[in-house]
């Protein structure tokens, strides 16, 4: 725990990111407790500017915007986290199998991956969304990850191909360790930093994807969703033509931007968390490690230290 804290406090921006993420997570977890009921319609409070009673103003129906944002967080985060986890798990499994289990498995899996990669993902998602009908979050997350695991699988595969050539993999095989052991304990930990970073990026992708689907209106409306708010703001409220519904348009956009910023700012902290090589300050003295010496010189960057006799 102290390690986590030390890594996050190393840079100010990481703390900002952490704060943003915690804020949205808090909204998702405790939002319904703060606002047990959906904001009520007030026909004579349409399009109010921000005030103490309505921190973010009101919408076309006179509803308070802030509770809508807070309540929307749960659904956005829930689907996004699930979609990102699906993407990363599927991508990692396919990538590991293709990279390690030999040329036949590799060829089969990579052709399938390529197929998914070549289909335009928005089109795929739209078609799936319309035909399957996204009645619950689980299906929605599945559909969102359906189109995005391919890139991950390809990246993981190529990393496995490079890691498996490293000497320590051979050493482990030489010690008679099982194939499963080599994959899980030797190769996977080396991919972890990438996987985690990709998880964060997949998270941002899923947020856009999900909000986008609601915005386009191809999924059944749920009132408490940022995408739906955007849809109403641009469509029914005419935010494109008049300034009166500015707050209704800007609030979900702001929420999305802040959430994405939070994720991105935390990414490098999380990367450092899972990669011990980046955690220099935690270790003992490494004053004469040969690998760590890289020097600038008038001739450009020249690593010193014998690596390859």
């Amino acid at each position: 725990m102290t390690t986590v804290w030390r890594i996050f406090t190393k840079r100010k921006m990481r703390l900002v990111g952490l704060f943003l993420l915690l804020m949205f997570t808090g909204m998702a977890l405790f939002g319904p407790l703060i606002y047990p009921q959906a904001p009520a319609v007030h026909p004579n409070e349409l399009y109010l500017p921000p005030s103490w009673n309505h921190l973010l103003g009101t919408d076309y129906a006179g509803r308070n915007i802030l509770p809508q944002i807070v309540l929307g967080a749960r659904n956005v985060l829930y689907v996004a986290v699930m979609a990102a986890v699906f993407t990363v798990v599927l991508g990692t499994l396919v990538g590991l199998a293709a990279g390690y289990l030999g040329p036949v498995v590799d060829a089969v899996l990579m052709r399938i991956t390529d197929m998914f990669l070549t289909i335009p993902s928005i089109a795929l998602i739209l078609i799936l969304a319309v035909t399957i009908g996204m009645s619950n979050y689980f299906v929605m997350a599945g559909i969102l990850s359906f189109a995005s695991w391919g890139g991950m699988a390809r990246a993981i595969r190529s990393m496995v191909l490079s890691v498996r050539e490293r000497s320590f993999v051979e050493v482990s095989q030489g010690l008679g360790m099982s194939r499963w052991y080599v994959i899980v304990k030797e190769i996977l930990p080396n991919l972890l930093p990438y996987i985690v970073v990709h998880l964060m990026l997949a998270l941002t992708g899923a947020v856009y994807g999900e909000v986008g689907l609601f915005f386009l209106g191809v999924v059944p409306f749920k009132a408490d969703n940022w995408g739906v708010m955007l849809n109403f703001a641009t469509g029914g409220s005419g935010a494109m033509y008049s300034t009166q519904s500015l707050m209704f348009l800007a609030s979900p956009i702001l929420a999305i931007v802040l959430l994405q910023t939070g994720i991105v700012l935390c990414t490098d902290a999380v990367n450092e968390l899972v990669d011990p090589r980046l955690r220099n300050s935690l270790g003992g003295a490494n004053s004469h490690g040969r690998t760590s010496r890289r020097r600038q010189s008038p001739l450009g960057s020249v690593p010193v230290g014998s690596r390859n006799p």
């Binding site: 008038p298 960057s301 020249v302 010193v304």
Partner: peptide
């Protein structure tokens, strides 16, 4: 300093492939 470098004093590094 640059003038001296190469013309009067030169350097050869261990890892030639990197220079």
């Amino acid at each position: 300093q640059r003038e001296v470098f190469w013309q009067k004093v030169a350097m050869v590094f261990q890892a030639a492939q990197n220079t």
